[in-house]
């Protein structure tokens, strides 16, 4: 662990004057906004890279995840519940149609007897098939590698769900109320893990990663794969890691360590 310190708390407030102030100090690494808002350990790539307000996502960045399956406890689904909480994914008690952006998958190798458990979410492919098939261009890959659905353009044809090898996407089958202000979602469109884009854009960790860290799991590492100095880039350079269905050549941005397949 790099042991870097990082302050990333942004108080929830809607006062634009205060926001401007925050914007101005965004690059400064050591301001404590509220007691206890200090993060030790895994942080984003490097402080200097925090994107300034008003600027576009950069193609020099590729956000990714490295998930260490050995550190993922089969009984733990903190990442899943954090995602549900963060993005307001509470369902209607209908598992077949309720959305899931991240799920824990148990795998068992019948040949060796090894069982493992790991989280699977949108793999944020470099060559995403969902983007290729989308008729309106609603599915797209942002410059920094995050694959998203522009729900203003989505017509709900669900072709992307047919094309995704990871079953990462869900169709919103019912009306939704009480959405989070930062995570709009609505009936008739397709959605999936956004890597918590609202957090990433304000220099915070995705909710699943944070929850995993909080729970002491430390199985999920988020960062910029293109920045050679980032923790994630260093680790993938150092240790073998793999992509789910790497054979398909889609080059997912989510990688797994110690996966037995």
């Amino acid at each position: 662990m790099s042991g870097k310190m990082k302050h990333t708390g942004i108080a929830a407030e809607f006062n634009p004057a205060r926001r401007k102030f925050l914007g101005a100090i965004a690059g400064v690494a050591s301001v404590t906004l509220a007691p206890g808002v200090i993060l030790y350990g895994i942080t984003r790539s490097g402080d200097a890279r925090a994107r300034k307000p008003g600027t576009a996502a950069s193609p020099d960045v590729r956000w990714g995840l490295l998930i260490d399956v050995n550190h993922c406890d089969s009984g733990c689904d903190k990442c899943v519940s954090a995602c549900v909480e963060e993005n307001g994914l509470q369902g209607h008690g209908r598992p077949a149609t309720d959305p899931q952006w991240i799920r824990k998958v148990k795998i068992h190798d019948p040949d060796t007897g090894l069982s493992q458990s790991l989280p699977v979410m949108c793999q944020h492919c470099a060559e995403p098939p969902c983007v290729d098939v989308c008729p309106t261009g609603a599915s797209f890959k942002r410059a920094d590698g995050i694959v998203l659905v522009d729900r203003h353009r989505c017509i709900g044809c669900r072709y992307c769900m047919m094309a995704c090898p990871y079953k990462a996407r869900s169709f919103v089958h019912e009306e939704i109320e009480d959405q989070k202000t930062y995570a709009p979602r609505g009936k008739g469109t397709v959605e999936a893990c956004t890597l918590c884009i609202h957090r990433v854009d304000s220099d915070r960790l995705p909710a699943c990663v944070e929850a995993c860290n909080d729970a002491g799991g430390g199985a999920m590492l988020f960062g910029d794969l293109k920045d050679p100095n980032s923790e994630i880039a260093r680790r993938v350079a150092r240790y073998a890691s793999q992509q789910i269905r790497g054979d398909l050549g889609l080059d997912p941005g989510v990688r797994y360590r110690n996966l037995s397949t």
Binding site: K104, V105, D109, P165, K167
Partner: peptide, 13 residues
């Protein structure tokens, strides 16, 4: 998702 493996999840894997 994991060819050759027995797979299960809450999402009908």
């Amino acid at each position: 998702l994991f060819p050759g493996m027995e797979v299960s999840s809450s999402f009908y894997d």
